[in-house]
Nucleic acid binder design. Structure first.
Length: 494
RNA sequence: GGCGCCUUCGUCUAACGGUUAGGACUCCAGGUUUUCAACCUGGCAACAAGGGUUCGACUCCCUUAGGCGCUACCA
């Protein structure tokens, strides 16, 4: 049987980083087994629907290279269209299917109409809590006569359809990740399957769709584990074959609570905005809850397909450590070739308002040099502004004391800077680069030492205590600007 | 409260009864560098607790504790 996995988000705005991991794992399993990965949109809660969220979801999967084999995609006009033969893949488009399914369950005795109002339910719940009981539906309508129910419906009464879970017995199933799990039927609630507005709840829709879409592996977050017995009961009630279930460990905040906005970034977009590379994010989340059992830390998508296995998925939740994310990102940044890195960095440069007209050839060359200089220093692309500001928008408001190296005096610093100036002037504009500069400056440092020469030069050019090497900066600055900044330094000292 | 899941360095994790409990990130120290970063070398740091089973338990069983999740006409 062909392996078919799916990811089924709700279009409530952004994509959660944990959701991306769930999607990745599902995608990997499909690819590894030459199967299909299905994207399905679970938009049965109208109140939480966010316009544009589906489009956004589709785009993100495209960006990450996790495009579904079936599901909604965007056409040239950016409209949502369906791809695949097992649709519709957007639940709101097939409400009649769920209604039909719910009615079928009523007919075969596995579900029933319920006319209790939400006020009634609230009251009932409050009382149960007061009495220290587990809050549950009191099953008032469970044994209502079918003909009477029919009459009330025709009279226009609002109703829901509830699952008629067995009063006793146990349900056991084998979770792909957790092994054998057992629940007691008597503790299960008579879950609403069809809401009074005629829309299905998650529990109904997920079962109907996973069956219709021929899903073989349901890999989802751990929070769904407690409702799996209801789902399994539904499969049985319909007489359908069960898929395999696997419940993934949660992503956690540093305090080990469920990952939330208050503690960390949760939206995938947030990570992109900070300048984490696609490869980094994929690699990182793959390893949060799974590992191949070797010491390998860096994985391409292709390697992940090869190595991934459900057996090695972790049971316990995983804290998302930003420091390690940064480290991984720096690894990928170092591996990029200059052109690609430059084009990735351009948007971040624009964002820091340092430069806008990047069509200029000369400017692009300058930017490339800055990128080259930054490549080993960046943990995130959005850090580029800090380094680039030295070139585009220098503050140079350092105190003159900073120019003085160790035991040197201001006078000797002035002398050294003047010497550097003289030497720079002997280089013609066209030849002004770090190699030529280095050839010349060697004589100076040989005589006076590295520190007394290079330290004041560096401060003069960068204005900072810490910065990239001075000759690198000078190279990018060019001869005129370099001389200008040295003059400024000398002026400060006088 | 009830039910369920989980538990190896601070974090991500390896170990599938016999290891000085390994790796990575972080942190610290040294080296390199005029400075910073990067890089190199080294170091600190863990089997939640208590019972069993066994010649031998991180590994198997039980109990306890703690953490988390679910307990909606939300997913």
């Amino acid at each position: 049987m062909q392996t078919r996995t799916r990811f089924a988000p709700s279009p409530t705005g952004y994509l959660h980083i944990g959701g991306l991991r769930t999607a990745l794992y599902n995608w990997l399993i499909a690819k590894k087994n030459n199967g299909s990965f299905v994207l399905r949109i679970e938009d049965t809660d109208r109140s939480r629907f966010v316009p544009g969220a589906i489009e956004n979801l589709i785009k993100i999967f495209k960006i990450f290279g996790l495009e579904p084999d079936e599901g909604p995609v965007l056409n040239e006009k950016e409209e949502i269209v369906e791809k695949g033969d097992n649709g519709p893949y957007i639940q709101s488009k097939k409400l009649d299917v769920y209604r039909e399914a719910a009615k079928q369950l009523v007919k075969n005795g596995h579900a029933y109409y319920c006319f209790c109002s939400s006020e009634e339910l609230e009251l009932n719940k409050a009382e149960q809590i007061k009495n220290g009981e587990a809050p549950r539906y009191n099953r008032r309508c469970r044994d209502l006569d079918n003909r009477e129910a029919q009459k009330r419906i025709e009279a226009g009464e609002l109703y829901v359809i509830r699952l008629k879970v067995p009063l006793q017995g146990k349900i056991k199933f084998n979770d792909l990740i957790r092994g054998e799990v057992e629940f007691d039927y008597s503790l299960l609630d008579d879950q609403v399957l069809l809401k009074s507005d005629g829309w299905p709840t998650y529990h109904l829709a997920v079962v109907v769709d996973d069956h219709h879409m021929k899903i073989t592996h349901v890999l989802r977050a751990e929070e769904w584990l407690p409702s799996t017995p209801k789902h399994i009961y539904l499969y049985r009630a319909f007489g359908w074959e069960l898929p395999q279930f696997g419940h993934l460990p949660l992503l956690l905040n540093p305090d080990r609570s469920k990952l939330s906005k208050r503690h960390a970034d949760v939206a995938v977009e947030d990570y992109l905005k900070k300048g984490y590379l696609i490869e980094t994010i994929i690699n990182f989340i793959a390893l949060l809850g799974w590992n191949p059992g070797t010491d390998q830390e860096i994985f391409s998508l292709q390697e992940l397909i090869r190595e991934f296995s459900i057996e090695k998925i972790q049971k316990a939740g995983a804290v998302l450590d930003v420091k390690k994310l940064d480290w991984l990102n720096s690894c990928y940044i170092k591996k990029k070739n200059l052109d690609e890195l430059t084009s990735l960095i351009l948007p971040f440069l624009k964002e820091s308002n340092l430069t806008d007209n990047i069509t200029d050839e000369k400017l692009l060359l300058k930017i490339k040099k800055i990128v080259a200089l930054s490549q080993d220093r960046l943990k995130r692309l959005n850090e580029i502004g800090e380094i680039a500001s030295m070139f585009f928008n220098p503050k140079l408001d350092y105190s003159s004391d900073l120019l003085v190296w160790k035991n040197e005096t201001k006078d000797s610093v002035i002398k050294n800077l003047e010497n550097i100036k003289k030497l720079i002037k002997t280089i013609n504009n066209r030849d002004f680069d770090k190699q030529h500069l280095n050839e010349k400056i060697v004589d100076l440092t040989a005589e006076a030492g590295n520190g007394p020469i290079l330290w004041p030069l560096r401060v003069a050019l960068s204005g900072e205590k810490n910065s990239p090497p001075p000759l690198e900066i000078a190279d990018i600055l060019g001869k005129d600007e370099t001389l200008l900044r040295i003059n400024k330094a000398v002026g400060k000292l006088k």
